[in-house]
């Protein structure tokens, strides 16, 4: 566990390891934050805003969250990832507010004694975050239109206990 002082960016919410921020993500600092002497594999995943999706132009995205619930779930998922993949370190940052095309909306950094666990944990975390954490994106189209994205059905999530 790193101290809050070691955190590369100011904490927003309850802890330094999982954060929701409204400023650009410092991905280099995030990767450095998971460095440990026993870690031989360090993975950084960065999700960025696509400029074109299936032929439709995106001018930018805007993210909104139920912040207390999202931070609680991020902390739970991180704890599960640490145990499940025997990680040495793990940090997650998600942007809120407007995010320009090409900018990072999410970054996940993991470290483990061996690469396989670090890769697997980063992917597992991303998929779980996209499935259960209450963060939403609004797509601003090239024509100025705005559309919230609400794919699928969240009632199954409640059924599995969140």
């Amino acid at each position: 566990m790193s101290s809050p002082e070691a955190c590369p960016q100011p904490a927003c919410g309850r802890g330094p390891h999982c954060r929701l921020i409204r400023t650009p993500i410092d991905t280099v600092a995030l990767l450095a934050a998971v460095a440990e002497d026993n870690a031989g594999g360090n993975v950084l995943f960065v999700g960025t805003t696509r400029g074109v999706t299936e032929g439709v132009v995106t001018r930018g995205l805007e993210y909104e969250a139920h912040e207390s619930l999202a931070l609680g779930l991020l902390d739970e998922l991180r704890a599960e990832a640490l145990a499940r993949f025997s990680l040495s370190g793990c940090h997650v940052v998600h942007r809120l507010g407007p995010v320009a095309v090409g900018a990072a909306s999410i970054a996940i950094a993991t470290s483990a004694p061996h690469r396989r666990e670090a890769f697997a944990a980063a992917e597992w975390l991303l998929e779980r975050i996209k499935a259960v954490v209450p963060i939403w994106k609004c797509d601003e189209g090239g024509d100025g239109s705005r559309r919230w994205s609400h794919p699928g059905d969240m009632r199954a999530v409640a059924g599995e206990g969140g």
Binding site: Y63, H66, I129, P134, I135, W148, P151, D153
Partner: peptide, 10 residues
């Protein structure tokens, strides 16, 4: 209490 529509973070 909050209503949580299908999420789309990431």
């Amino acid at each position: 209490v909050a209503v949580i529509p299908p999420v789309s973070g990431g």
